[in-house]
C-alpha cells in the first residue's frame, strides 16, 4: 500500500519533471513563431523595439492591407496555391505509380532505375539549375506554371516512401484481385491505394511543402512579378530602398500559415505515414 503510493508519487514527480523539460524545449522551438506573429502586429519602425514587444500591437491590418495593395503578394499567394496544389496531385500520381512498380514487380532494369533514383539524392541540386533553365528557355517555358511543376514531379523521396510502404501490402491481396478479374489499373487504384492512404497523406504534405517553399529555381525561371510565387515575392520585398518590415513579416507569416494549417489537419496521417515508411524494413 505505502509502497505503491510512493510509486505513484514518484511517477508523478518524474512525469512533472519530464513534462516541464520538454515544455521548456517546446518554448524555445516555438519562440521564433511567436516573435514572428508579434512582429506582424507592429509598424515597421517598432518591430525591433527594445525592450522587445511581448503583446500584439495594433498594426496587423495596416500591414496586411499595405502588403496586398502595395505589392503583388496577393497574386503570389494565388500562384503558389495553384502551383503547389497541381504539383501535389500530379506528384502523388507519379510517385505512387513508380513506388508501386518498384515494390511489387520484378522486371529488367529495376535495380538500375532504382539506383538512378538513389544517386540523384547525392547530387547537389544547384548543379542542374543552369541546364534546367536552358531547357525552359528552349521550350519557351519561362514564366509558366509547368516550368515549376514538371521537373521535380518524380521526387526521389516520394518514390522511396511509396515503395517502402507498398512493400507492406500483401501480395496475396493483389493476386486475389487479379484472379477475380481486376485489370492492373483497378488492382492499383482499388486495392493498393486505399491500403496506403496514410502514406499518401504524408507524401501529399511533403510534396506541397517542397513546392510551396522552393525558392532558387522559381527565382530563375519566373521573370515577371505577376508570375511570382510566395518565396520569390517575399524576396523581392527586400532590396535596395526601405524595407517595410511590418509588411515583410506579415508576408512571412502568410507564407507559413497555410502549410501550418495543412499540417495540423493532416498531422495524424502524417505521423502514421512516417511510421509506415520508417518502421517497415
Amino acid at each position: 500500500m505505502t509502497e505503491s503510493l510512493i510509486g505513484v508519487r514518484g511517477r508523478r514527480t518524474k512525469s512533472l519533471v519530464l513534462t516541464t523539460a520538454i515544455a521548456a524545449g517546446a518554448v524555445v522551438m516555438l519562440l521564433p513563431f511567436y516573435w514572428l506573429i508579434i512582429a506582424t502586429t507592429y509598424p515597421s519602425r517598432e518591430i525591433f523595439a527594445s525592450p522587445p514587444n511581448v503583446l500584439p500591437g495594433p498594426a496587423f491590418f495596416d500591414n496586411l492591407t499595405g502588403l496586398l495593395s502595395d505589392t503583388l503578394f496577393g497574386r503570389a499567394i494565388g500562384n503558389s496555391v495553384l502551383v503547389a496544389s497541381v504539383y501535389t496531385l500530379l506528384g502523388l500520381v507519379v510517385c505512387t505509380a513508380a513506388g508501386y512498380a518498384f515494390a511489387k514487380f520484378e522486371f529488367r532494369g529495376r535495380g538500375l532505375l532504382f539506383g538512378a533514383v538513389l544517386v540523384t539524392l547525392a547530387l547537389p541540386s544547384q548543379v542542374t539549375l543552369v541546364p534546367l533553365f536552358q531547357i525552359m528557355v528552349t521550350l519557351g517555358w519561362l514564366d509558366t506554371y509547368q516550368a515549376l511543376i514538371l521537373p521535380n514531379l518524380a521526387l526521389p523521396f516520394g518514390i522511396f516512401l511509396m515503395r517502402q510502404t507498398m512493400q507492406a501490402v500483401p501480395d496475396e491481396l493483389l493476386q486475389a484481385a487479379r484472379v477475380d478479374g481486376a485489370g492492373e489499373f483497378r488492382v492499383f487504384s482499388r486495392i493498393v491505394l486505399p491500403t496506403v492512404r496514410p502514406a499518401l497523406a504524408a507524401l501529399a504534405i511533403f510534396l506541397f511543402l517542397a513546392q510551396w517553399n522552393e525558392f532558387v529555381y522559381p527565382l530563375v525561371v519566373l521573370r515577371t512579378p505577376e508570375s511570382f510565387t510566395i518565396p520569390v515575392s517575399l524576396a523581392s520585398l527586400q532590396g535596395i530602398g526601405t524595407t517595410d518590415y511590418g509588411q515583410l513579416m506579415t508576408g512571412t507569416l502568410l507564407s507559413v500559415l497555410p502549410i501550418l494549417v495543412l499540417f495540423l489537419f493532416l498531422q495524424r496521417h502524417f505521423v502514421a505515414g512516417i511510421l509506415a515508411g520508417a518502421v517497415k524494413q
Binding site: V216, L219, A235, S236, Q238, G239, I240, T243
Partner: peptide, 10 residues
C-alpha cells in the same frame, strides 16, 4: 541591402 540572400541571388 538588407537580405544577403537576396543580394547574392540577385
Amino acid at each position: 541591402k538588407r537580405s544577403r540572400g537576396v543580394a547574392v541571388t540577385a
